[in-house]
Design a protein around this nucleic acid. Structure first.
Lengths: 328, 328
DNA sequence: ATGGTTTTATAAACCGGTTTAGTAAATCGT
DNA sequence: ACGATTTACTAAACCGGTTTATAAAACCAT
């Protein structure tokens, strides 16, 4: 049944007052009206079943109480953990988060950024692909609230950023392999397009270097997930098979585990494994895998807090926050 | 730098035409203007760097191209899988999804429903707590686009719903235990407040009944997650310990696994386990656990499709769609 | 030249709120 | 009793678009 939407004008008419007064009432500025007027409005709202339209308010007030999160890959567990932390933070402040999945595609990322801005969301937390430099620059210059998460962007823009100590953590993990006597350590990674992967590789190389082990490019497997298997095949058909393997993120890890399962290579016996990433239910596995996990909740909260500060117009110079990962 | 926002009026002025014409241009209705006019507008937009404000448009057009997803528990993997499918669907139709986490709390659910409606989102997909009947009814009666997911609500409202065959799948799984010779089968579940849990319990009971096995209430563990451990303690200190265990969802499963790990109870040897839920990386585990998995993506797509139909005003009588789960 | 169409464009109302400037009536101090 | 405040309230502009009714100009046919 059509049931026309009740607007403020209807309430005003029913209560015999002006729209302005109803608006004041809704904003709880009761000092602008008499006791009787207040009751009349209250009653009119109840009998009409009036529900205010926030869109109209947003148009005038220039804020929507929406914030956007643009993740590079929504199937990445770490990203969802971060997103949840951000959501939790903003929920406490009565803002809703809109999560969009850029799929590591700069075009999609661009589309989402433009769309969310057009819809006047109050700010953005972005896991940047790194490929939309002009767009990033544009936002920053216009003073639009933004926080970058997880990845560095090329030229150091003057933006708040949240990172982990990718290089250092990887360095320490690889060092542990070396301390245990491993000499043939493989590094498996998706295409080196983003800073996290490059930084982790850097840590791997430095650890080998500092231990006086020569870096063998054949031990470094860089491939897209679909090609990963073939490349692993090659890796494990070398004369000197690796005895330890560093998976640079969860997707690489999955590819590796699937491969090992198929080849019946025993974890712990034939091969030791370290994974740089947060994996759900990791603590339930009783396989001898080490994980480098990032403090996702803390990172999310920090990002949310920084974004909220910008939205609230607090004046603060952008900084880069580096959170330490830890191995378990 | 303040850089005042450029509006349509500015573009109109710069191009020497009226707002109306600029609006037509933006909506690609070029037949309403001359070639020269079109070019002037195009140029003015470019030089001014004009970005339209979708909020203003939404106010007039009464649609925001936002849809809301209200999940009962965002840490539930199945829910995130469903949400992703929904997002993917709507992304293709240029609508954004807003995911909110009701935390299984009817108050929070209510708050979110009201808030999203106030913000004029075009429709909602809800994993209902089941406790806000009046609110649900209200939406349905007003013809507001809604789809219910995963759980049944008390009185059968006339709404599109997506479910799995909870009872049947559980029945079959328990039957398998029985076929293997198990007589002492435990059922572990969170508080029986929602239909999914009740339906699964129903399947368990029916399977035992049909096999002529007496239902022992001591084998049915119903507890909140924090109390789960204590109750499991009691379960496994019975004279006749269970030799098989059915975990009614992922959270119950986690609690069970943690408990077993602590007690050093060997899966597969001392105890067989079936879990009703989608678990990430489940295929990587080589423990002998069976999982009943729901076709999350299909369910999500169906829900999205049904909601989209309602938004597009397609006339269709609400139905309940039951998707079969399968055991792996 | 006349009248009928088509093309091109605009003014003004509208969406549903918020906010500001202004005012009538009530209250106050002296 | 009088001006000064204070209280209670409203009209109208505003936010930034869309849409409709209207009209001038250009084109066409006879």
């Amino acid at each position: 049944m059509g049931m026309e939407k009740v607007t403020m004008a209807d309430v005003a008419r029913a209560a015999g007052v002006s729209k302005s007064t109803v608006s004041q009432y809704l904003n709880k500025r009761y000092e602008y009206m008499g006791e009787k007027t207040r009751q009349k409005i209250e009653e009119a709202i109840k009998t009409l079943g009036y529900q205010p339209n926030f869109l109209a308010r947003s148009l005038k007030q220039k804020r929507t109480s929406f914030i956007g999160i643009i993740v590079a890959n929504i199937t990445h567990y770490f990203s969802t953990e971060v997103s949840r932390a951000i959501e939790d933070f903003f929920h406490q402040h009565d803002l809703q988060a809109i999560v969009c999945n850029a799929d590591d595609d700069p075009e999609k990322e661009k589309k989402y950024i433009e769309m969310l801005r057009a819809k006047q969301v109050d700010g953005l937390i972005i896991f940047p692909t790194g490929q939309n430099h002009d767009l990033y620059k544009n936002m920053v210059e216009q003073g639009y609230p933004v926080v970058f998460m997880d990845r560095k962007v090329e030229e150091s823009l003057n933006v708040f950023s949240i990172l982990t100590d990718n290089t250092e953590s990887t360095y320490k993990a690889v060092q542990r392999f070396i301390d245990k006597g491993h000499k043939h350590i493989a590094f498996v990674v998706q295409p080196l397009r983003v800073s996290t992967r490059l930084d982790r590789l850097e840590g791997y190389k430095r650890a080998l270097n500092d231990a006086g082990i020569e870096i063998n490019p054949d031990y470094i497997v860089e491939a897209d997930i679909p090609d990963m298997k073939a490349k692993l095949e090659r890796l494990f058909s070398m004369e000197l098979k690796p005895t330890a393997l560093f998976a640079a993120n969860d997707r690489a890890f999955m590819a590796v585990v699937e491969f090992l399962k198929e080849k019946k290579i025993q974890l712990g016996e034939d091969l030791e494994l370290i994974v740089f990433d947060n994996i759900p239910f990791a603590h339930l596995l009783d396989t001898p895998i080490s994980f480098i996990i990032q403090p996702a909740r803390e990172m999310g909260f920090k990002a949310a807090e920084l974004l909220y500060g910008q939205i609230k117009q607090e004046d603060r110079t952008p900084e880069v926050f580096v959170f330490p990962s830890k191995m378990i």
